[in-house]
């Protein structure tokens, strides 16, 4: 059981568990802090640099990323100082220059009052925040995608830029992506995730024939839940109808 400590945020006293990360506490207490690479379910990585706050641990205020800053006793936090707003604006402009094709990122920046950038605009829609990679490695546990290259050549990819056989085609990487850079395209019984060179076949629903999930995902799920793999090859709409049929028999 970790110790409960008290911190001050914008002059307000807040109780928190020692060692928890600051951003999670700020968000649960209703403070608004911009963030892109943070997700509750994975370890913080502090790559988007948007969650900047001013932190005083007894030796003066300094700027730090709140997503990976542990809570300490008597810590003081300031959120919207002019320095923070200036830094945040710069970070947003860098991100907008890095990923100008992302509609979601542009809208998010606009929400925080940043439009356009002073930097030379590049191509692409990925900000290399690594959220997809962390979800794939830590939560799903298959490590199908990772970063390749260094510096300006760093990209998100799979080994040899080819389909990774360990990818289960669950699509979690796409659904956590803060810039919608990774997309899942389901056409009929084929699921394609072009960014990570993944192409899977969806198993058809045993009643209506629509695509449900990939075979590898069903195997992963079967291992997790100890249900037989064939239990998952039915779509949720058909499951509802089957349940209704069972109920109708029961109330006869």
């Amino acid at each position: 059981m970790s110790k409960i400590v008290e911190i001050t945020v914008n002059g307000m006293k807040i109780k928190a568990k020692e060692g928890e990360f600051l951003l999670g506490i700020l968000l649960t207490k209703g403070f608004e802090v911009p963030h892109l690479c943070y997700h509750e379910a994975v370890t913080p990585y502090a790559s988007c640099r948007l969650c900047l706050v001013e932190v005083n641990r007894g030796n003066g205020f300094r700027i730090a990323t709140s997503c990976n800053h542990p809570v300490m006793d008597g810590m003081e936090v300031r959120l919207d100082t002019p320095e923070i707003l200036e830094e945040r604006r710069n970070v947003f402009e860098v991100l907008l220059a890095q990923a100008p094709d992302s509609q979601k990122l542009r809208l998010y920046a606009k929400k925080w009052g940043v439009e356009g950038t002073f930097l030379r605009v590049q191509e692409g829609d990925c900000i290399l925040c690594g959220l997809c990679e962390r979800v794939c490695r830590e939560v799903i546990g298959v490590s199908a995608i990772t970063f390749a290259g260094r510096g300006a050549n760093k990209i998100l990819s799979t080994p040899y830029d080819d389909q990774n056989p360990s990818c289960i085609g669950c699509g979690s990487c796409a659904r956590v992506c803060p810039t919608e850079s990774i997309k899942v395209i389901d056409t009929g019984l084929v699921r394609e995730i072009p960014k990570i060179h993944s192409k899977h076949e969806l198993v058809p629903c045993r009643i209506c024939g629509r695509g449900t999930l990939t075979k590898q995902h069903a195997q992963w799920l079967a291992k997790r839940t100890n249900f037989p793999e064939t239990d998952f090859y039915i779509c949720e709409k058909c499951k509802t109808k089957e349940t209704a049929k069972v109920y109708a028999r029961v109330i006869q």
Partner: peptide, 21 residues
């Protein structure tokens, strides 16, 4: 919502079809 990663496992796991997508 803030913890969810959208893998869709729960939708397939519910035997009654009460998890919707």
């Amino acid at each position: 919502e803030s913890r969810c990663i959208g893998c869709g496992s729960c939708v397939q796991a519910c035997p009654f079809g009460n998890m919707k997508w």
